[in-house]
Design a protein around this nucleic acid. Structure first.
Lengths: 197, 197
DNA sequence: TCTTTTATGTACCAATCGGAACAGAAATAG
DNA sequence: CTATTTCTGTTCCGATTGGTACATAAAAGA
């Protein structure tokens, strides 16, 4: 791969990490291009050359967030039983949304639950992003049912939606200042609604 | 009360109802003054004369929303037992956030979970508004403990936070398009985590 | 070295933002 | 009637928004 032209003076991933932080704290609509470029420490044309525009920058940031900051979902799904999947998911979710040094809550929630009609695509993007995560758990629980790990009387999609609802609520609480200890007890209680072995 | 000067040509509460709708759909930052005045069908100076500014209009709208659209909280708290309080709360919450003809979800969530630093007060306002609701349930459950309705081993604040977390999650799901039936089953499952008689 | 290609910084653009000035209109008080 | 008070619509304001032109700088290829 012969590189042509002047090389980029910043690392894409590092820049995206800065974007993640500011979008996480302020949401899509609450974040200006000046906020982004200041956080990235690059100029405006550099951002446009690298990412296209504000919306694409946001989507790239959310994509990286899903890979980096929500990697625990992979680990949770890899657990051997549905019950362990749920426990792992809620436990690590509470940790992630109350991580010191990071904004409280979850980018895919704080990024924008609502918005002006012209930003409708951003809201939908986050929405489908969340649905994608929920679908992964639904597939995992369906496998558990097929394997006999979960009772056939259970509904995989319903269980996935239940967990997604709880984690969404936890994120809202975290963004509002709830402590890790508080949310751990909430998560523990929520697990009472999940089928036990 | 002698009325002096030219009388207002619109009804405050009707105007606020329109504001509720648009803030609910688009959030605080996603709603412009033109959106508000268009929805209210009044001119900009009329809005400023009646409500002060955009932020105060929003707070007034949220206040009315809490009284009108969340009246079911009063009914829930009036139930004779903690268990019935929880059941009533979740059941009517699901109905409220999936009410046909109204925006899906909850104004106190969609209004703004995050925002630019200069709108920080709005985010905090919603936050404390939600905490206020949670505190009402905490007080109700403490009374249930004191009365012996709930086991003394339970923690009233934790139970209230649990329900608040679930309803926040339900609102996120509703805003994302989840159906009433889906959320009813989620709410039913969440009740498994609430002490039964 | 000279051309080509891409990244960078400054400076700028039209559009929109929340808010206010102002004059006129509609009511009551006297 | 006149004076006073308050609401209304039009118009405008400076500031900020997302996005771009343009000249320049830094690399590779010939």
């Amino acid at each position: 791969m012969a590189e042509r032209g002047r090389p980029r003076e910043f690392a894409l991933d590092e820049a995206l990490d800065r974007a993640i932080e500011v979008f996480w704290r302020q949401g899509y609509e609450g974040t200006t291009l000046d906020d982004i470029t200041a956080a990235m420490k690059i100029s405006r044309p550099s951002l446009y050359a690298a990412f296209g525009n504000k919306e694409e920058t946001f989507k790239r940031a959310v994509g990286r967030y899903a890979v980096v900051d929500m990697a625990y979902i992979d680990d949770a799904i890899a657990e051997p039983t549905a019950r362990l999947v749920a426990e792992h998911y809620l436990r690590s979710n509470v940790r992630a949304i109350t991580e010191p040094g990071k904004p409280a809550g979850c980018l895919s929630i704080q990024g924008g639950l609502s918005g002006s009609p012209e930003h409708h695509r951003v809201v939908s993007f986050l929405n489908e992003s969340r649905r994608g995560g929920e679908a992964r758990f639904a597939a995992r629980f369906q496998r558990a049912i097929d394997d006999g790990d979960l009772s056939a009387s259970e509904n995989a999609a319903e269980l996935a939606k239940y967990l997604a609802t709880v984690t969404a609520g936890l994120a809202v609480q975290a963004s509002g200042g709830a402590s890790r200890a508080d949310l751990e007890s909430v998560a523990h209680r929520a697990l009472l609604g999940f089928p036990a072995p």
